[in-house]
């Protein structure tokens, strides 16, 4: 067999191994109910802020503590704790991707991805235009 072919095979095998091992690192999107069943497992929640409860953030007391209640599309709620600053415009966000895990009674959040109607978007301008006018 040619040297080149051997190297080729080895490298391709390596790439396949890498991709397969990567699938082990992958996480899943969960609902609040299904995340609660897997405490300690790193998951992604798609939810929004439940405005019935106050959002707790006081930079005077602790600039690295944010807590709020998130609700998903199925109507389940969970308290979320995020040890970082409150992302700007978070209240306006209509959709949050919360990355973290359920710990005891709350969701320990490592990262928040916001899906704002504002960012780069001009799709929902129908509402925005009529709202601003």
């Amino acid at each position: 067999m040619k040297k080149t072919s051997i190297v080729l095979l080895v490298l391709i095998a390596a790439a396949i191994v890498v991709l397969i091992s990567y699938t082990g690192d992958l996480t899943t999107y969960e609902t609040i109910a299904s995340a609660k069943e897997k405490p300690g497992k790193f998951v992604n929640l798609i939810a929004k802020i439940n405005n019935d409860y106050p959002m707790e953030y006081d930079a005077v007391k602790n600039p690295n503590y944010l807590s709020f209640v998130a609700v998903d599309s199925l109507g389940n709620s969970i308290k979320v704790v995020y040890h970082n600053n409150k992302p700007t415009d978070m209240e306006k966000s209509e959709r949050l991707v919360l990355k973290g895990k359920v710990q005891d009674d709350h969701f320990e959040c490592k990262d928040i991805l916001m899906k704002c109607p504002s960012k780069y978007k001009d799709a929902p301008n129908n509402q925005t235009v009529s709202k601003t006018l």
Binding site: V18, Y22, D25, L26, T27, T28, Y29, F42, V43, N44, K99, K110
Partner: peptide, 16 residues
């Protein structure tokens, strides 16, 4: 499917 990125996305790339 509903596969989400890994816990530490950057490390998943960096380690390779």
């Amino acid at each position: 499917t509903k596969i989400a990125p890994p816990e530490d996305t950057e490390y998943a790339y960096n380690q390779i």
